[in-house]
Design a binder for these strands. Sequence first.
DNA 1: ATTATACTTGCACATTTATGCATGTATACA
DNA 2: TGTATACATGCATAAATGTGCAAGTATAAT
Lengths: 128, 128
Amino acid sequence: MNENYIDALKALAEPHRLRLFWLLIHVDQRITVAEAMDVTGDTQYNASRNLKILYKAGLLTQSKIGKWVYYSLAEQELPHWHTLVESVRSLPSDDFADVATRCKKRLAMRVDNECVIGPNSEAWLKKK
Amino acid sequence: MNENYIDALKALAEPHRLRLFWLLIHVDQRITVAEAMDVTGDTQYNASRNLKILYKAGLLTQSKIGKWVYYSLAEQELPHWHTLVESVRSLPSDDFADVATRCKKRLAMRVDNECVIGPNSEAWLKKK
DNA sequence: ATTATACTTGCACATTTATGCATGTATACA
DNA sequence: TGTATACATGCATAAATGTGCAAGTATAAT
């Protein structure tokens, strides 16, 4: 039962994933793998794998729309899970400030709140 | 800065240590390595090492009294640290119930709230 | 002084985990 | 029908981690 909880702790105990999860909390929105790549600078396979690990750990939800895969913060019912998320939420934002602002820029490229531009696009490299 | 936080997550992301930390939270008292061994059934070196890892991660405090080393819950000032501890505190106690009751039995062997009996004593093996 | 006790730690070994690369799958588009 | 795009994943390698054993240090007891 708390093997799952330990999996969640393990999932968060890695810098790239902690940053991704913090981002998902603070952007308060679903994001695609492509957007995560652009915002964090992670490689395609690492962005994909790390989001999946957070999902498998029960921290994110996943939804596929066409060729895009959106991840977003999972709602937590259990107190210890909810509190764990709150702990990450209250991390000092200084450390992630740049990621947050870059994410806003990236989300501004959406159309009707849907991701329409792939990773490492010209438009993004210019904007960044 | 949040390297430390990641170290704390790593420290908690191991079953033996999570159990030890949960115990330190719920027993609301300092305990020695010997007592931790008896209560958890961990080997001497693992009890020692795991408590030290929790201490180094900033989750416990350490104090040596004679040949005994006491560990106890560290007070947390920072919100994300405090909340992390609260998350572990609210873990369902079912999973750790037996450890908690065994710890009470072990602490009952103290004199003036000081540990005076070493690990794997006759008295403990009988009591257990 | 010597011995016992509580705890620590270096070492070897096995398991796990992170990463890059290459390739595979699914969907969209021409 | 073929090609481009978004994402996933098997494999090999390197790094990190957990564990047992044996030996170490520090304090207490005799």
